[in-house]
């Protein structure tokens, strides 16, 4: 199977560097604006919950963080898979750029979940819950990817070894998603799903959706910025990089 031509064109490092540089500010600022609107709506406009009172408002950070943690893992793994099969260097660069962003969002999801768990469940953490454990496994997969990548001297070897780890870890994604449905768990089931009406009223839901959109845009902007830096570093001997650096653009 061949990759489509437009993808090959986009994958040329100078082309990617230019396009990404043009998109990135738009994503960053619209993402930050959406996060501001969503946070305002979620923290101030949305009504308190009938049982949890104001404590439920942590979902406006917890849910987007957890969602992004998984999406970014998928992005990292797809980049690695494309790199492994098609030997596309840019795909590896994007994977390497994604890992720390995903790690940060996973850490945020774990931290906000624990802060909510103490007052609501009565415990920060409970070993034995499949959702909590599988997300912690994802945290270590991100960390393992970064450590493995950093520990190998030769960049192409590092890309391949860490890439295999990223692809293997994909098995964990469905486990995270369905853990609360396959097994009994402490963590509640999904509130928003594609198949059922959301189990949350609209005035509480819209800020959450805005926050998710904002978090997606923001995280992609950060990932693109990191990927551009990664491309410059990896192509530092190339002529186009010298031109870019000389102009200062």
């Amino acid at each position: 199977m061949r990759l489509p031509n437009w993808l090959h064109k986009l994958a040329s490092p100078p082309h990617f560097y230019r396009i990404a540089g043009r998109i990135e500010p738009w994503m960053l600022w619209s993402g930050l604006a959406a996060i501001a609107v969503g946070a305002f709506g979620g923290l101030l406009l949305a009504p308190p919950d009938y049982q949890q009172g104001d404590a439920y408002r942590i979902i406006y950070f917890h849910v987007p963080a957890a969602y992004l943690a998984m999406q970014l893992y998928a992005l990292m793994a797809i980049g690695s898979a494309i790199g492994l099969v098609w030997r596309m260097k840019l795909a590896y660069a994007i994977s390497a750029a994604t890992a720390p962003v995903g790690l940060a969002f996973t850490g945020l999801a774990l931290a906000t979940g624990m802060l909510w768990g103490k007052p609501m469940w009565g415990a920060y953490w409970s070993w034995g819950d499949a959702r909590l454990t599988s997300v912690l496994v994802m945290f270590f997969l991100y960390l393992g990817y970064m450590l493995l990548h950093a520990s190998l001297e030769e960049r192409s070897t590092a890309d391949r070894a860490a890439g295999i780890l990223a692809v293997v870890g994909v098995v964990n994604l469905p486990i995270i998603k369905f853990s609360v449905e396959w097994w009994s768990s402490l963590h509640q089931g999904p509130t928003i799903s594609r198949l059922a009406a959301p189990a949350i009223t609209w005035d509480m839901l819209w800020p959450l959706l805005v926050m998710i959109v904002g978090a997606v845009l923001f995280s992609l902007a950060v990932t693109l910025t990191r990927a551009r830096a990664e491309v410059l570093l990896r192509e530092r001997g190339a002529r186009w990089v010298r031109d870019v650096v000389a102009v200062g653009a």
């Binding site: 009938y50 509130t191 189990a199 509480m204």
Partner: peptide, 16 residues
Amino acid sequence: EVLARHDENYMPPEVA
């Protein structure tokens, strides 16, 4: 040890 388990429903008190 007794932990509370929350369900996936969120709503304002008036709706409840």
